Simulated assay, not measured.
Amino acid sequence: MVSLVIVSHSEKIAKGIKELALQMAPDVKIEIAGGTGDGRIGTDCLNIMNAINNAYSDDGVLILFDLGSALMNSEMALDFMENIDKSKVKIAKCAIVEGAIAGAVEASIGKTIDEILEALESYRINK
């Protein structure tokens, strides 16, 4: 089953999004990387790497993010990772709350990572 990683500048927001998504799809593995390592607002490449490692599955990992620098740090985290098949980790450029809920539901019914990304097109940012 495809897993999700929620990357947010706020740990509280990341936890809340995870909580909402798990209400709809309780069997989906969802990891969060919210805030910085010392509890401030921001994103942390190491936290994102750890979340990806914890969520990793041969079915794939879908990363959702809240703001531009979260995207940049997610891309950087992927660049630094050597112990995973990076082709199985994809970043969804969509609204984070709606995308996480829809993505979790799609994953829970066995959709592939590419099918999930296609389903999330309607939530895409920068159309």
Score class of each variant (00 low, 15 high):
Val5Thr: 03
Gln23Leu: 14
Thr36Tyr: 08
Ala100Glu: 04
Val89Phe: 11
Val2Gln: 10
Arg40Pro: 13
Ile109Asn: 05
Thr36Lys: 08
Ile13Leu: 15
Met1Val: 12
Ile52Asp: 00
Ser3Thr: 06
Glu31Ser: 13
Ala77Trp: 12
Leu117Cys: 03
Gly34Ile: 07
Met1Thr: 13
Met49Thr: 11
Val61Gln: 04
Val7Trp: 07
Asp38Tyr: 14
Asp79Ala: 09
Ile116Ala: 13
Glu118Ser: 15
Ile6Cys: 07
Met76Cys: 05
Glu115Trp: 03
Val2Ser: 11
Ile41Asn: 09
Ile30His: 01
Ala14Asn: 12
Ser69Arg: 05
Met76Phe: 09
Asn53Lys: 15
Lys93Pro: 00
Ile41Cys: 14
Asp44Leu: 06
Ile30Cys: 03
Glu11Lys: 12
Ala119Gln: 10
Lys86Pro: 10
Ala104His: 02
Gly16Met: 06
Ile17Glu: 02
Asn83Lys: 04
Ala77Pro: 02
Ala102Val: 12
Ala92Leu: 12
Asp85Pro: 03
Ile13His: 07
Met72Gly: 14
Lys29Gly: 01
Glu11Pro: 00
Val105His: 00
Glu115Leu: 13
Gly35Pro: 08
Gly99His: 13
Lys86Arg: 14
Ala119His: 10
Val5Ala: 07
Ala107Gln: 12
Gly99Ser: 07
Gly103Tyr: 04
Leu78Cys: 03
Pro26Thr: 13
Ile84Lys: 00
Asp79Ile: 03
Gly103Cys: 03
